[in-house]
């Protein structure tokens, strides 16, 4: 499918700020599941944009606004073709060989260790959640394919968390979402990642977009978040815990990381008084009819 994404972020400050440096992780990825047809980013005030690829392979666009200003707008416009129709179409390998497959994947690419070992407030040890979760944690059954255990985990998450818009802070501790029994898509993704890592399975965070026709979280469209786990035979498979779905061609991945902090769409640093106001974010995602 082909989508046109438009993503606008408006930051406003009560007093002037200056020496403002911004990094954006907004440009969608190009990989086996999706192809970027076009991508442009503009800013207001206008600026000179530079780019690099970060450790996780995300494209980072960065710029600075040095003179005093009270408003900063960034606008992304990108057309993306998605290719993954059936997430189950891969050649599975016998459960008895899966562990060796995973170990080898990590051995060959040491940076994969990050997706197994990383612990933070966002993706803590499963132990840290034990007090807040009274139900039994899902177990990985090594007799069966890993994918089955991961699907059980996916289905388990909505029994712990209920989707509540704006109920947790950006980059807030996972344990507080779990304790209150509700959170946003980030928390769902972090919980999935936390349990998968406790099984020794590489799992990572994905920030991106979901077709509003599929999304059940309603209201205004913003960025979405899900998890990816490394599945033997398949590679990275996307798990959208908020919707209890495997990701497919209705999803567009933008940035990945160990947790939401790594994949934050916009990061900045400036001199001046910080604003209490939330950034005003407007996202549209339209399916493009192809000729």
């Amino acid at each position: 499918m082909r989508y046109l994404i438009e993503h606008e972020t408006i930051l406003e400050y009560p007093n002037t700020v200056r020496e403002h440096h911004i990094e954006l992780r907004l440009a969608p990825r190009s990989d086996g599941h999706q192809q970027v047809i076009s991508c442009s980013i503009e800013t207001e005030p206008a600026s000179e944009m530079a780019t690099y690829r970060d450790y996780f392979g995300n494209r980072v666009d960065y710029f600075c606004i040095i003179p005093p200003h009270t408003r900063l707008v960034t606008r992304l416009k990108s057309e993306v073709e998605t290719l993954k129709e059936n997430p189950f179409s891969f050649e599975a390998i016998p459960p008895s060989e899966e562990q060796e497959w995973l170990l080898k994947a990590v051995r060959n690419a040491p940076s994969m260790n990050d997706f197994v070992l990383h612990r933070s407030l966002l993706t803590p040890t499963a132990m840290k959640l034990a007090d807040a979760i009274t139900q039994a944690f899902p177990r990985r059954d090594k007799e069966r394919p890993l994918l089955e255990s991961l699907l059980e985990l996916l289905a388990w998450i909505p029994t712990i968390l209920e989707y509540r818009s704006g109920s947790t802070e950006v980059h807030g501790a996972l344990v507080s979402a779990v304790a209150q029994g509700g959170g946003v898509c980030q928390d769902f993704a972090h919980l999935f990642i936390t349990v998968a890592r406790s099984w020794g399975v590489p799992a990572r965070y994905v920030m991106g977009y979901l077709d509003p026709g599929i999304s059940q979280i309603g209201e205004t469209l913003t960025t979405h978040a899900w998890a990816e786990a490394l599945v033997p035979g398949a590679g990275w498979v996307g798990f959208d815990a908020t919707h209890n779905l495997l990701t497919n061609d209705h999803y567009i991945a933008v940035a990945i990381g160990r947790d939401s902090y790594d994949a934050a769409p916009q990061r900045g640093s400036f001199k001046g008084e910080a604003s209490d106001a939330q950034p005003l974010v407007t996202v549209t995602m339209q399916e493009q009819v192809q000729n």
């Binding site: 970060d54 450790y55 996780f56 060959n108 040491p110 260790n113 990050d114 070992l117």
Partner: peptide, 25 residues
Amino acid sequence: QRIIKDGVIPPELIYQGRDFRREIV
């Protein structure tokens, strides 16, 4: 990261080290 791939240094040592800076890889 040859030294990790060759098994001389355990990967956990680096990936759990506070001062391994992914930002400069």
